[in-house]
Structure formats: structure tokens, C-alpha cells
Design a protein around this nucleic acid. Structure first.
Length: 587
RNA sequence: GCCCCCGUAGCUCAGCGGAUAGAGCACCGGCCUCCGGAGCCGGGAGCGCAGGUUCGAGUCCUGCCGGGGGCGCCA
């Protein structure tokens, strides 16, 4: 089922094509009508005709009889479209009986590599990783849902100079102790102890430097110890992912070390392409358009003056691997905004070297910082960055007390309450993160994100649970999964009736689901989907207040409203699911 | 100094070049006390500043002001 706006856009496009082929109808939802097409105004200049004349011509040429009850030209040349009730009823019924809820899968499936999360081995995960992980996870779910093939990559920091120090620390404390610390998640302690030795002990520092060389040269014992650090850190990361409820698994781990063997070839091919320039002892590429503090060309340093490879070399190898081996047609880098310039340079150099053909897109999906109530980077009282696990545990425990206070559903077992607390707490954190524009910083506020009122995860989850409760209250077995009463119950509900303004508003809101999802994916902006779901939930509330469902005046109205309610619940559950947020049946 | 992002109501945020800039919280006034108050209805209050493009600018362009970030061997 093509979605509503697609149907209208198609009809209008045909009309516009008769006047000026390819002219954009500029179709938008409107508060003056159901939809408004503003294309006549911009076309007026091109054609040198009065806009109202063009609008009139469009209305005459457009075949809208079966979908609109009224079409008017108003103002300077707006075309206002008022959908016919029968079309709305027909469309929303199609949606209600459609397992896919009317969402069209893409007609141009791509292989999309999404790289996100990327924690560092033997280092704590903090709120910065939260954003990347949650946003990346939502993007993967949405892309897959629309029919794209998604390859998740967790580019963990598992290579480089810090490992000399970390391995020597491992040697000093013994593997048993090290493993114990890492697996309970005391990564801060481990890393800081290593750092302290490195900074305060010259002998340790020397050993560390030698250890880096051993690691680089592939010394088996060094590699074994390195692997201990990596494996046990991954165990810990998995615990965090488990708490967070994201899709990432060990199979998605493709860390810096994976690309290490490819780095000499990167250098060699850049050299062969004539792009490599030696500058101050380092081997660099100078992509055009980037300058430094002094206004001089800014280099992407591929090989440092000490002969080691920097992260630029690794990122270039990533591009090659993703294009040549993984076969990506699109790459999304869910990486913090501060990396913008670095990534632009990497992409540019990749293009110059011919590693990133024009048919493959590489997109930085940047995000802002998480701020505390003081509008500065979120920190603990001690001034250290907040551990992600602590934050998640606090979310769940705060949600648990919120539920205990409210005591919504007394029938819940302890185990069910525990699961609900988890869904609410984690959902609240995720929703708070996903619902604001990615690019902006956002203020982390427990009170607000856990509130059952306003644009929050718990509000949407509660809205969903309340709708489900309608069905529990209705006689059991009266509805099938499509929301329509079953034939065997002797009820003749096969149609949706859109009589009241509230029913109409709800129907139109439901019909906007597909468009909202597509725009969220097109713009890599989960917040678009959040905004849609919130609007749907509030529209439902108004409907629910004004239109009795179980006590509807007649059977036909009742079954129609049940179907609208059920469809709303399904959209909420599926939409939240695509954001990585659970929707408990009861809470 | 240059580059990037951001400045919208008291607070937190939406706003796709289109008509009268929307929510939530907080505040004020009504209503419901009925399917789990996610209550419902109404009210006050705002686009950092100055130019420009356009029939039309919160949205695009330029310059300021303010906040954050980046700017060669950490990743």
C-alpha cells in the first residue's frame, strides 16, 4: 500500500507534468486543509504566469475525485486538499489489516555499513559511547526494516601505543588479577593504574615502549597477552550492550587491529597514486580545501615521523575494506561531531585515491554532547566522566521506584515488575537521547526523561500499555491480530468508520507512519520518528477522551474504534521497537 | 586567526522556503470525577542583532554578537 502522501503526490505530479514536466508539487500536511500543494507559486515565475492561474490549471488537470472531497485554490496560489472520508476510511483499513502497517520497503535496497559504538579496550564506556551506540542501533533497525541490508561494525580501539603500557601493567599485576578487574568492569582502575606507572616510572615507560615494538612485530607472547586484554574487555562491552538492549554482538567487532595488516598497502598505493608528500618527517596527503591555523594546507598524516601509523591510515583502510570486501554502497559513521573534519579529510583522500567510487556514499552522522544540568559536559560530582553502566543501573532503579510509587498494575509479579523497570529505565534514557536533533547537545535530566507526561519514553510506553489494556478488558478472543473482531464471534466489523473529528485526526496520524519512518531513515534522524510517535500518542489521547471505545454507541462503531486503537498500539510498539525501545503489555 | 555546529516562550525542545511560529514542563482559569488521568478544554509569554535574496525568510546568503567544538604526528 503506497502511503497517503505518496498517492496524493503522484496524482499532483501528473497534473504538474502537464504544465512543466518534473515540477515539484511541494506537497505538505497543512493546518488549513489535510494537505497543501505549494508548487504553483514557484512555478509561476518560471512560466511567467500568475500563480493562481497555475494553481487553477493544476486543479483542473489533477485526478483527485476518488481521494478528495474538496480541492480549493486559496491565498496567493495554494492548492488545499481535503481528503474524502471514504478514502481515509479505506486507507486506514488497508493499513490496519496490513502486517507491515502500510510501510513500503525501499525499491532501491542498499548494503549499508553502519559503524558505531566503538569503545576502547581496557577503558571505560561513558556517555559519549551511549549516544553513538543508541543512535547507531536505531539507524540499523530502521534501515533493516525498510529493506536495506545492514552490516554493523564496531570499530573498537584495540591497537596502538597505549597497549605497550597496558600489557606491561598486565605483566606487573598478573593475568589473574587483570582478568578479574576487566571482567567486573573496573576498567578505569586498570587503565589509570597503567597510566600512573607509565607517567611515574621511567623503567616502566621503557618497557612499555619496547612492548609496543614487540606487539607491532607480532611477537607471539605479546600478542597472547594483548588478546587477553581484548577478549575480557569485549566480555565487559557485551554486558553493557546487554543492559542497553542493542543489536551489537561479538560478530560485529571489527577493531583497529583488523586493519593493521592493510596499512602498508594503503601507504604504498597512495605513493603509487602520487598523493603522498613528506612533511616534517611524516608521510601525508594534502586534500584540497583544508587549512590549518596558519592558513597552510592541512595534512592527513598517514605515517608518523617515527614510522608508526596514525588513525588516519586505519580509517583509510576501513574505507577500502568496506567498499572492496564488504561491498558497501553506503557507509554511515555514527561518530561525534568533533571528528567532522577528520572524516571529511579521510573521505576526500579516499575519493582522490579512487577507493571511494561515486556510486558509494560515505556519510558522517555526527552527534552533540550529553550535558549536565549546568550545561557543561556531564560529569560525576568528582569531576570524572560518568560510567555508562552506572548511568544505566540508575535509570533502571529510578524507573523501579517510579513504578512502585504509581502501582499501576497490581497484578504484576516481581519478575514482571523487574522487566518493566528495565524497559522503562532504559527506554527513558534512549528516548531522551534519540528524540532531540542529533547534531545538538542535550541536557541530561532524570526527572524529565522518566516523567510519564510530555515527550518521553515512559509516556509512549504507557500510552501503548493503556491501549493494550482496552483489549484485555474487552471480552477475550474478540479480536484477531489485525484488530478486527473475528468472524467466529459473530461480529460484522469489516470497515473503519471515520465520523468524528477525533477519529479523522487519528486516522490521518496513523496514515503518516510510513512517511515519518522514511524521512527518519533518509535523514539518519531517529528524532523524526520520535516526533511522529509522540504526535500519534497525543492524537490518540484526544480520540480516547472523546470517543468511547468499549462503550461505543453501536457495534460497528465499537469495532471500528477497536481497530483504530489496535493499529495505534501496533504502530507505537513497532515504532518504539525500531528505536530499540521495548513496549511492555502492562506496567 | 581560520573552519564546523548551535542561538526559537521562564525551562527543555519541534518547526520540510509558504498563510496566524508549535509541543511538553512550570504558571493562570474552567470541565470531567466515565474504558487505568498518557485527563480534557482554554489563556499569557518567543525566532540573538543588522543587512540581503524572494511574491513569501525562524528556515537560504553576508556580516556582527553569544555558546560549544576543531585546527600535523593521541584516537
Amino acid at each position: 500500500m503506497p502511503d497517503l502522501s505518496a498517492v496524493l503526490a503522484g496524482r499532483l505530479q501528473a497534473a504538474f507534468d502537464t504544465l512543466a514536466p518534473g515540477a515539484d508539487p511541494v506537497l505538505r500536511p497543512s493546518d488549513r486543509a489535510d494537505f497543501q500543494a505549494n508548487g504553483a507559486l514557484s512555478l509561476a515565475r518560471r512560466l511567467g504566469l500568475p500563480p493562481t492561474e497555475i494553481a487553477d490549471a493544476v486543479v483542473r488537470a489533477a485526478q483527485l475525485d476518488d481521494v478528495c472531497e474538496r480541492v480549493e485554490v486559496s491565498g496567493p496560489g495554494f492548492v488545499n486538499l481535503f481528503l474524502s472520508t471514504s478514502f481515509v476510511e479505506r486507507s486506514v483499513r488497508e493499513m490496519a489489516v496490513d502486517p507491515a502497517l502500510g510501510v513500503e520497503r525501499t525499491d532501491a535496497p542498499e548494503r549499508v555499513v553502519v559503524t558505531y559504538s566503538h569503545p576502547n579496550v581496557a577503558k571505560e564506556m561513558h556517555v559519549g559511547h551511549l549516544r553513538s551506540t543508541v543512535i547507531g542501533d536505531a539507524l540499523c533497525r530502521m534501515l533493516e526494516h525498510l529493506g536495506h541490508e545492514v552490516v554493523r561494525e564496531n570499530h573498537i580501539g584495540d591497537w596502538g601505543t597505549p597497549f605497550g603500557m597496558l600489557i606491561e601493567h598486565l605483566v606487573d599485576v598478573g593475568e589473574k588479577t587483570a582478568i578479574a578487574e576487566l571482567s567486573v568492569g573496573d576498567l578505569t582502575g586498570f587503565y589509570q593504574a597503567a597510566r600512573a606507572s607509565f607517567d611515574g616510572d621511567d623503567e616502566f615507560k621503557d618497557r612499555s615502549r619496547r612492548r609496543v615494538v614487540l606487539l607491532q612485530s607480532g611477537d607471539p607472547e605479546t600478542l597472547r597477552m594483548w588478546s587477553v586484554l581484548v577478549q575480557h574487555s569485549i566480555v565487559y562491552f557485551d554486558e553493557v550492550y546487554e543492559k542497553l538492549g542493542v543489536l551489537l554482538t561479538d560478530d560485529d567487532v571489527k577493531g583497529e587491529s583488523f586493519y593493521n595488516p592493510m596499512l602498508p598497502q594503503v601507504l604504498k598505493d597512495l605513493e603509487a597514486a602520487g598523493l603522498l608528500v613528506e612533511d616534517a618527517g611524516a608521510l601525508c596527503v594534502f586534500p584540497p580545501g583544508f587549512t590549518n591555523r596558519e592558513g597552510d594546507p592541512l595534512p592527513l598524516i598517514v605515517q608518523k615521523s617515527d614510522g608508526g601509523f596514525g588513525y588516519a591510515a586505519t580509517d583509510l583502510a576501513c574505507v577500502r575494506d568496506r567498499v572492496d570486501v564488504v561491498g558497501a554502497t553506503r557507509m554511515l559513521y555514527v561518530v561525534g561531531a568533533p571528528q567532522a573534519q577528520h572524516l571529511q579529510m579521510c573521505f576526500e583522500v579516499s575519493r582522490m585515491a579512487g577507493w571511494l567510487p561515486s556510486r558509494v556514499s560515505a556519510v558522517h552522522v555526527p552527534f552533540g554532547s550529553v550535558l549536565g544540568a549546568d550545561h557543561r559536559m556531564l560529569r560525576t560530582r568528582a569531576g570524572t566522566s560518568v560510567r555508562l553502566v552506572d548511568l544505566l543501573d540508575e535509570a533502571v532503579s529510578r524507573a523501579a521506584s517510579a513504578i512502585a510509587e504509581r502501582g499501576r498494575d497490581a497484578d504484576l509479579t516481581e519478575e514482571e515488575q523487574r522487566l518493566v523497570a528495565r524497559a522503562l529505565g532504559i527506554g527513558a534514557v534512549k528516548y531522551a537521547d534519540l528524540s532531540t536533533d542529533r547534531a545538538r547537545d542535550y541536557v541530561f535530566d532524570w526527572e524529565r526523561m522518566l516523567s510519564f507526561e510530555g515527550d518521553t519514553g515512559p509516556y509512549l510506553q504507557y500510552a501503548h500499555a493503556r491501549i493494550r489494556s482496552i483489549f484485555r478488558r474487552a471480552e477475550s478472543g474478540t479480536t484477531g491480530t489485525d484488530g478486527f473482531p473475528r468472524e467466529e464471534d459473530g461480529r460484522a466489523a469489516s470497515a473503519i468508520v471515520v465520523g468524528t473529528p477525533e477519529e479523522r485526526a487519528l486516522a490521518l496520524s496513523l496514515l503518516g507512519y510510513g512517511a515519518a519512518l522514511h524521512s527518519a531513515v533518509d535523514e539518519s534522524s531517529p528524532s523524526k520518528l520520535c516526533a511522529y510517535l509522540y504526535a500519534l500518542a497525543t492524537t490518540f489521547t484526544t480520540f480516547y477522551e472523546h470517543c468511547p471505545v468499549l462503550r461505543a454507541p453501536d457495534e460497528m462503531t465499537r469495532s471500528s474504534r477497536l481497530a483504530l486503537s489496535e493499529t495505534t498500539a501496533r504502530v507505537l510498539a513497532e515504532g518504539l521497537g525500531l528505536l530499540g525501545i521495548e513496549s511492555p503489555e502492562r506496567m
